[in-house]
Design a protein around this nucleic acid. Structure first.
Lengths: 214, 214, 214, 214
DNA sequence: AATGAATGAGTCTTCATTCAT
DNA sequence: CATGAATGAAGACTCATTCAT
């Protein structure tokens, strides 16, 4: 009756949720969302099949909750804020370092979530709204600031920001696709990525391209 | 009895295969591999469900054939050869132009294939062996040549090649994820991509990084 | 330990039982026995799900207890005794009045119990033994008495008694089926029913039928 | 392709539907709708479980189709028209004879359908609209005609018609409830029912009731 | 070669019941 | 006694695949 806001109960419930989500992450990552069965997930979580439904509305909800937790965990905004508030070019390296570290740490989650997101329009929309759009907005701000300081060519800001995202996403996906060289050179990635971006967008371009509008 | 190598029959069969694969592409792209049913594919192809099994071993085989046809169609090697045989920096723009054009043309196929490939290890392996690995090899050759000519810093060749791939893959995926800005600035992409890569890897780096070994 | 026969405790327990049975009546009536869940019943009763099992052996027992309470409440014997001990034809009207009033008062209970009873042979048996059979026996006695007094044709007593029951049951069921006219003319029903029965079985039949044996 | 309206195929499909509905009738009648499993129905029909879903949208649809077929089979309108077009009182006997015969013939169907109908409001509505309402309308017409001819008291027509229905429904339900006397006296029922109705509503009432308005 | 009805293994989901607190 | 989280058996339904026509 009075258990509605019992903090202990609340915490136990949260722990159960996490326990199930962890199991779901592992199973989805290994088999993919559709080939994963609720029975497997339950076994992996060490609970009965029915218990899942005491915490989630259904298998779909499991995926959505997974994505929500991923977005929560990633905290791109903080990451970018921290990395970009320093003026130095080093900060770009630092940013990529954080991202690369995250790609490793959350590998299973990405493996579990990305294929499903690429498939379902509603999940795509949500990932965009709650994850990609804010991250891109931060990047745009940063690029705009460097252009004002004359450290960067007046390149089309939105496009440039997206290309930085492309690099991050590309690294994630290429790694998921199993590129072994990428894995073996993993530690050197942040610097190379930074090199490309910083020099590629530096004030004095070597390629005789027109400055892009925007 | 002797119809085994009748060339007309052969051609009709090939047409049927393509007809079915086209339908599968459309349905897989819309619903994803697992939510797509053989019934839907048959309807979209205008044949009976059983007919599919006269041309393909099963639903899985449909996906594999789709991927094979994608690899066949893409012809990255030719594309890269053509684009990169010219010395000029323009060739990089041209390469990205080709790639970007392909991303648009084969959008449905990518949408159909990529999520499934990201899910299934065997498909991943195959995509790597028959598509990514050759493409990367070409890129490595090209980069190595430019380094020798002193147009590019002695950067770690394998890593650099992969980062170029990352850009291409990243653009593909970010577009699939529904980034609208990327779509609206679509035509300017090749040049910006080329700028980043060419300047980013140019002989005189702006970022004070050590030349990478390799 | 010695709480077994504590009268206060006993009464509390009985109150709990009734509280749960009332809730079960409402939920069964609305959703039907099988679509009703123990969770809903618990919520409607304002107790926890497990509490139900402290008072009833299971969901089935809930239905049986409901039927038992219905039989208890109905007390057809008293009703019939009171109505039929007067000689006048008015008593028939009175009997139907009681019955009709009961149909309204216990509507939810009938709605809850009848479909289940019609489905389950054991429940049917029980309803017969404890409710219908005694009621019919009373009716038969009454009819037999009137025949002896010459007020009624020597009709087959068992059949006649059952047809009176049929009328009562038919009214109940037709009402459950949602007949609106029956509802709107509800108050005039007892008299019309009595008319039919009294005149229909009166000493001088208008229909040229042979007196029925029995 | 061209099989859309193949009459042979059509007929085979109809036979399959009936085969499955017959099985569903038997199983629903024995176990009730909810306790019946699709597996049992499939076994009883001699088909695979999945085959059911090639002909019906789901288990619910099975019940609806059953009710539709019952309504179709019953053809109360024809039955009443035939029975009531003769003026003689015999026609009433004939009407009840038909009805009683039907109750026996379609016993399993009623057993299968009625409990479910009593439970589900939508089914109730449908039974009312397509079965009870038309039947009652016919009865009202008939009663009105007899009143005009002076053979019947000016009783409230809608109520009288419903009471006749009540008798029919009551017989059906009391039989379903397992009343054995009703079964053993089954052949004499039509005449007794007719007696009650005809004499009960005859021109000269014995019960000193006011003529009812209507 | 084409068809599409039949198949039945496999899954998600529900919910009555138990039991540790 | 009360609670409600955990349980897992059971069942409706889907859909890739087969095969007789």
């Amino acid at each position: 009756m009075d258990s509605a806001h019992d903090p202990v109960r609340e915490q136990l419930a949260q722990a159960r949720r996490d326990q199930i989500l962890d199991a779901a992450t592992a199973v989805f990552a290994e088999k993919g969302f559709h080939r994963a069965t609720t029975r497997e997930i339950a076994q992996a979580a060490g609970v009965a099949e029915g218990t899942i439904y005491n915490y989630f509305a259904g298998k779909d909800d499991l995926l959505i909750a997974l994505m929500a937790r991923l977005i929560e965990m990633e905290r791109v905004e903080e990451e970018l804020t921290r990395a970009l508030e320093s003026d130095s070019s080093r900060s770009v390296v630092s940013m990529f370092s954080d991202r690369i570290a995250r790609i490793v740490a959350d590998h299973a989650v990405f493996q579990a979530v990305l294929p499903a997101v690429l498939t379902d329009p509603r999940l795509r929309q949500r990932l965009n709204d709650e994850f990609l759009a804010p991250a891109t907005a931060f990047l745009e701000q940063y690029i705009r600031a460097r252009i004002q300081r004359g450290e960067m060519r007046p390149v089309a800001v939105p496009v440039a920001a997206r290309l930085v995202s492309c690099l991050a996403v590309g690294v994630l996906v290429l790694r998921m696709l199993g590129d072994e060289t990428l894995v073996s050179a993993w530690d050197s990635l942040p610097e190379v990525l930074a090199t490309i971006v910083v020099d590629g967008l530096a004030a004095s371009g070597c390629l005789g391209l027109e400055p892009l509008p925007g």
